[in-house]
Design a protein around this nucleic acid. Structure first.
Length: 844
DNA sequence: CAGTGAGCGAGCTTCCGCTTGACTT
């Protein structure tokens, strides 16, 4: 039996550390936080000076029980949670829950999981830093107060289920502001002048030399003037200058930079990056993936240097130590690096291999020499326009250094053209002009955020933490909130002019390009804009980008013992809560109403506003239509926005539903539904194929759509005298037989499925349904159900796993014998929230 | 799935940050 128990946060870390510490130590993990504020009444007693009420999180009950048992069996418990605010708090909560004495229990910290680092830590234990714990409590309580009170205000003033908070609301605001910047932006045209010369490459062969006019020309007239003046001009080289250029490698990855690079180079979403990195971490291939630090352990620096020297030679090695850029970095871990630098490739699947490769290259490159380049600039004079020069540039690589391995990409999608070597040139040399072109360009609007560039911005503002970047982005895109959508949109065509001077004559050409197309960019929805405006108006302080930074400053004061956490929370809460009360009493419901004009038929106003079901257009207000009348409503279509929709676009929405004619005695009516345009006939619905404009549908087209649908839904046979029909639902293709829906697996060719195959599927489903339930208590909505992986409880609609008895799974026979009371007890063991939510209701 | 949009009011929802399994459409 071990004498010591050491508790860390991550189970993967626990395994490694146990190896380093030997027999005397048992190492277990807390799986992160074990307790949190209670949900009811905010978990904070505001009257009692913000006294927090902590409860063990339901999903951590088992972990806590195991830790308690393990703690009993040893003579000493060591706390080795992460070296940051949250880690300190986890240690403190562990003390409370395990009944350890804060003034005795040994607390140790290490930033890197290496044997020397851990041994050194064990030799230098300290006590829990209660000031740091206070800072964490202040952070936690503040977030709860802000989050819950803001959200509850939104439920009253906009609609239920909405959420707001210190981090998410600012993330949405960033996207909203970007959206408005883009809406306001007007592209300004300009002309860019490029000359192509024919030059001897020194071996008697003619090659092209490209040169540009540095300043832009504003109008077509100016461009034409310029070309006109260049007619018959002599171009000669005025000056050649070279200067050395040095490029340094980027620091090793943090969570945020890994997410950005994986997004740009591998097209991973931020959550996919984190999932794949987690798998690599669990296999021991990389260090911890949620970190804000760019530093590497001394051991890693030494191994990487050795690796570089043997692979590429001594002159490629340059050990570097990077300092963190962001001010609120807590640096509890190392940078993200391969555990073993000599493992050139690793990973269980392609995603893992590609991400590992990226991490390996970035880490190793960060320890390599700078690249040495030489940049040459050539000024070319124009005889007819003294004082104006064209410029040609070229770059020569003198030493590749880290570029041998890794080139960091940028967000800017206007790619710099690769600059090559210039042909031999000398001052005074006369150049032979091939063409001189003035091409019309346009200034570009700011780019919408991608998931990764939003993370970058949040990090710059010090908002959010490595562990929350991905969940925050998922949250603001969730269905019930829908503040933001990730979309790829097609651009529009735009014409541009090219003026060309060739052999002393000028020609004009008009071409078109696609502009404004996007892929996987974040768009603010109408709801996102409405909520942001509401919060901005009433809670400007919290929506300020500096809010988190200010709070962090105060938390630092608490951590250093200069300030008291209750005072800090009180100072904030007073004015904040006043603003909440003020808003709840005085602010009117926010609908974002915009009046666009007047309906020529009725004279009623035409407006758009947010309804319970989303943004909608409306003709006539309640007052205008009077008691009997009803306003007319139409939903905005996907891609339309309340802010930018025009009067005419709104009026188009009211042209539907529209009858297009009769067919087989049915009236065919075209309309827009939630899932797109459709034809309604005989009480049935047929979706229009993509790209068909519902306003332009002809009778012939509608008939075709209806016929196609009829063919699809025609019974394809019968089973025991009852018809079988086909359908396509949310979960894929299915067969319908009486009340039974039978999913059709992919291996069947759904369009050409045979009657025999249908019978087989239906029979299997009936069989399965018969075996589905072991026992049901109808009134309580509790059942014991057979699933793919064995039996489980079903409480209302929720699945709850069956706990093991004496470490063994319970058999079907045992389960059959269980009474309702037994089952309830077992359910409570696993997840006490499922049944309790019902009790609470009864009380109220 | 193919409607609703107003208001009433019961009964829901919500934060940030630290961690992994679990997932039975």
């Amino acid at each position: 039996m071990s004498k010591n128990l050491l508790i860390v946060e991550s189970p993967a870390k626990a395994k490694t550390i146990e190896k380093y510490l030997g027999k005397d130590f048992k190492v277990k993990s807390s799986f992160g936080h074990i307790r949190d504020l209670d949900k009811g009444d905010k978990g904070i007693n505001i009257e009692k000076d913000f006294e927090p009420k902590y409860v063990v999180s339901p999903d951590k009950r088992k972990v806590v029980k195991e830790l308690k048992d393990a703690a009993k069996k040893v003579s000493e418990v060591w706390l080795a949670t992460d070296e940051d605010r949250e880690g300190e708090a986890i240690s403190w909560h562990l003390c409370k829950v395990l009944g350890l004495d804060e003034s005795q229990t040994k607390r140790i910290v290490f930033r890197e999981i290496t044997k020397p680092a851990i041994q050194k830590a064990v030799e230098n234990p300290r006590l829990i830093d209660l000031n740091l714990v206070s800072a964490q409590q202040a952070r936690r309580i503040l977030d709860r107060l802000v989050g819950f009170e803001l959200s509850e205000t939104l439920w009253r003033k906009i609609k239920g289920k909405l959420s707001a908070g210190r981090v998410q609301s600012v993330a949405v605001k960033l996207i909203v502001e970007k959206e408005r910047e883009i809406q306001k932006f007007e592209a300004t045209p300009y002309f860019k002048v490029t000359a192509l010369f024919q030059v001897d490459n020194g071996k008697g062969k003619m090659v092209e030399l490209k040169a540009e006019l540095k300043n832009r020309l504003e109008t077509e007239g100016e461009a034409r003037d310029f070309l006109e003046k260049c007619k018959g001009a002599i171009f000669n080289i005025k000056d050649i200058s070279t200067k050395p250029l040095r490029r340094n490698p980027a620091p090793p990855f943090t969570t945020s930079t890994l997410q950005q690079e994986a997004s740009r180079k591998l097209y991973f979403s931020v959550s996919r990056t984190m999932q794949v990195a987690q798998r690599l971490y669990e296999q021991g291939l990389i260090t911890y993936m949620r970190t804000d630090s760019t530093s590497l352990s001394e051991m890693a620096i030494a191994t990487i240097a050795k690796e570089i020297k043997s692979e590429y030679g001594d002159k490629y090695s340059k050990p570097r130590r990077f300092k963190s850029k962001s001010s609120n970095a807590q640096e509890a871990h190392e940078a993200i690096r391969p555990t073993y630098a000599d493992r050139r490739s690793a990973g269980a699947d392609r995603d893992q291999q590609r991400l590992y490769d990226l991490i390996w290259k970035r880490t190793v490159a960060s320890q390599m020499s700078s690249a040495e380049l030489e940049k040459t600039t050539v000024d070319i004079g124009i005889s007819t326009i003294p004082g104006t020069t064209l410029e040609a540039t070229g770059e020569v690589m003198k030493f590749d250094g880290f570029l041998k391995l890794y080139i960091e990409s940028t967000d800017d999608d206007e790619q710099e053209e690769a600059k090559g070597i210039l042909p031999p040139l000398k001052v005074g040399q006369e150049l032979n002009l091939e063409t001189l072109q003035a091409v019309q360009k346009f200034t570009r609007p700011p780019a919408r955020y991608t998931e990764a560039s939003l993370v970058k911005k949040l990090e710059e503002l010090g908002i959010g933490r490595p562990s929350t970047y991905a969940p925050t982005i998922t949250k603001i895109m969730e269905k019930d909130r829908g503040y933001v959508t990730k979309e790829s949109r097609e651009g529009v065509e735009r014409a541009y002019q090219i003026l060309t001077l060739k052999e002393d004559s000028i020609s004009t050409e008009s071409k078109t390009e696609i502009t404004g197309s996007t892929s996987n960019r974040l768009y603010a929805s109408d709801l996102g804009m409405l909520v942001t405006d509401f919060l901005d108006e009433h809670f400007g302080d919290i929506m300020n980008y500096k809010f988190t930074a200010d709070i962090e400053e105060k938390l630092d004061e608490i951590a250093s013992g200069e300030d008291d956490w209750r005072k800090m929370v009180g100072d904030f809460y007073g004015p904040f809560h006043e603003a909440i009360e003020e808003t709840r009493e005085n602010a009117s419901r926010a609908r974002g109403t915009r009046v666009l004009g007047e309906d020529p038929d009725s004279g009623h106003s035409v407006l758009v506003q947010m309804t319970r079901y989303g943004p909608a257009a409306q003709i006539g207000t309640k007052e205008e239509v009077g008691e009997e009348g009803k306003p007319r409503f139409a939903n905005l279509r996907p891609g339309q926005s309340m802010e930018t929709i025009t009067f005419n676009e709104v009026m188009d929405l009211f042209k539907l539903p529209k009858e297009v004619g009769e067919y087989k005695g049915w009236t065919l009516e075209v309309n827009n539904g939630r899932y797109g345009p459709y034809v309604k006939y005989d009480g049935k619905f047929a979706s229009l194929p993509k790209g068909m404009d519902p306003l332009e549908v002809t009778l012939e087209q509608a008939i075709e759509v209806v016929e196609q649908k009829e063919k699809e839904i025609a019974p394809i046979g019968s089973y025991k005298g009852e018809p079988i029909t086909k359908g396509k639902g949310r979960f894929g293709p299915f067969l319908k037989y009486k009340d039974l829906y039978v999913n059709v697996p992919k291996k069947f060719d759904f369009d050409n499925i045979t009657e025999a195959e249908c019978h087989e599927l239906i029979a299997a489903k009936i069989e399965k349904e018969a075996n589905r339930y072991i026992k049901i208590w109808e009134d309580e909505k509790i059942a014991i159900e057979n699933g793919r992986w064995g039996p489980f409880f079903r409480v209302k609609r929720k699945a709850v796993k069956i706990p093991k008895k004496d470490d063994k799974k319970m058999t079907a026979e045992e389960l059959k014998e269980l009474s309702l009371e037994d089952v309830k007890k077992l359910i409570n063991e696993v997840d006490p929230t499922v049944l309790n939510s019902k009790k609470k209701k009864a009380k109220k």
